[in-house]
Design a protein around this nucleic acid. Structure first.
Lengths: 248, 248
DNA sequence: GGTTCTCTTTGATACAGATCAAGGGTGTTG
DNA sequence: CAACACCCTTGATCTGTATCAAAGAGAACC
């Protein structure tokens, strides 16, 4: 499996098994193939911290399998998740040394990494890469800003609906499913992680999910498997005028 | 005055009058000088919307004087500010056509603009530009994510303190002042705008400012001129462990 | 099969901030 | 200078979410 350098629209890649939003070295950016020699894989167990905020970061990379989160924590323990990393998502920043947040493995994960120095050196030689990273970063920025609206102005029920909509959308994108009507997926997060993402407590998350279930917007099978009966209804609950940003 | 392309650390620029976080065409990126022919200036009055969310954007540019805000609005009118544009800040995104948020002039402003097509063409030819835009976008992303912590987890008083700290810091950077002890500056925002930034109501903003005043953390002269008596104390009130990100 | 652990749900209560309402300052306009 | 428009402050009350507390469900382990 080759490195993936995520750059936006999802596409199939013969090299990797998954359909992803990335471009494999061999598919697209030939120069990346040169990096094969400095490429390496690492696995982390669920719950492990991949990167500590403030640490020196000597690599960039992407998630191959599993789920990780970007979180910030205050001294007293209050935690805010600021990003969700799904397979194909990129981690790290060329030109920066210090990690700005914790990266925590939510499930067991495999990362594909490059040492930063050679990666940066290649970026110098290959203008395309910087342009792609720019596109990607702009997407993340839009996502972060859309999330600011969620955190700052939405009510608990709208927050939950927003999160479910985002996960559903991303799941559908990966599976090439369409985005209307009924949708099913597994929640990749515990109630607590959802709470940390939404700026709520886990109790409130639980209550609001129960309420959406009671009101027939969704149903649950077990704690994690969600069926959205009507995507439009869910988006309405989310207070979403936008027909769906690039979120997460 | 030449275009500024913000790229991080503040520096003096003989070409522009202000000390800013930008690099002027002539100072640094020679190729930008070629763009002089497609450069133009526009003024907007306080309260005017510079760009409507969803609109076609055919230019990129930067703020020369005045203050503007990036905001998102829900159908029912709830508003969240997602960014603050001070002099030298960049607006627009190469490779994107549709504006993702409203840009509103908070004071009278002057913008320096480039038509997007030629700008993008030049980016193709000048790898440095993409790399700088990438740095800049990464800064904005960090700022947005730091703000997510503010919105999601901080209490009203902490939010206000955080905002004051950010404005103080930015103001000091522009003025080359140091970042400790006593600091004075003018609030560039109304209470309502502050509320929109912080995910609060204007009444709560007002009350918390009064409280900080009562507790001797700050004093006010008129409604807008703030004196922070002790910057460390303010940061403490903000619940800030970080010694100050790149925020805003 | 029982014990333990983690995750989740649900209930009761408390509180921070929203909402509703009134009034004060200051600058602008005629 | 009066009248108006903004912006800001302060008070009273309401409400959504946090907090505290208890117990259920499922998985993992012995």
């Amino acid at each position: 499996m080759s490195l993936e350098l995520p750059i936006g629209a999802p596409r199939d890649c013969g090299d990797c098994q998954i359909r992803h939003r990335a471009v494999c070295a061999r598919c697209d950016v030939d120069e990346l193939a040169q990096l094969d020699e400095i490429k390496y894989y690492r696995s982390y167990e669920a719950g492990q911290t991949v990167i500590w905020s403030g640490d020196q970061m000597d690599f960039v990379g992407s998630v191959v399998t599993g789920i990780a989160t970007l979180t910030q924590t205050m001294e007293d323990g209050r935690t805010q998740m600021v990003g969700l990393l799904l397979p194909s998502d990129f981690v790290g920043r060329p030109g920066r040394d210090i990690a700005p947040y914790d990266v925590v493995a939510t499930s067991d994960i495999v990362m594909c990494c490059f040492r930063k120095k050679p990666f940066e050196a290649m970026m110098e030689k290959t203008p395309h890469i910087a342009q792609r990273l720019l596109q990607m970063t702009l997407d993340e920025l839009d996502a972060a800003r859309e999330w600011m609206l969620v955190l700052g102005r939405k009510k608990a029920r709208e927050k939950i609906a927003s999160l479910l909509a985002i996960i559903a959308r991303r799941d559908a994108t990966l599976k090439l499913a369409n985005l209307q009507g009924k949708m099913e997926f597994d929640l990749p997060l515990t109630r607590e992680a959802m709470a940390d993402y939404l700026g709520l407590t886990l109790e409130t998350v639980s209550r609001q999910i129960s309420a959406l279930k009671r009101d027939g917007v969704i149903s649950l099978e077990g704690n994690r498997h969600v069926t959205v009966h009507d995507m439009d209804r869910l988006l309405e609950e989310a207070g979403d005028d936008s027909d769906g940003g690039i979120l997460v």
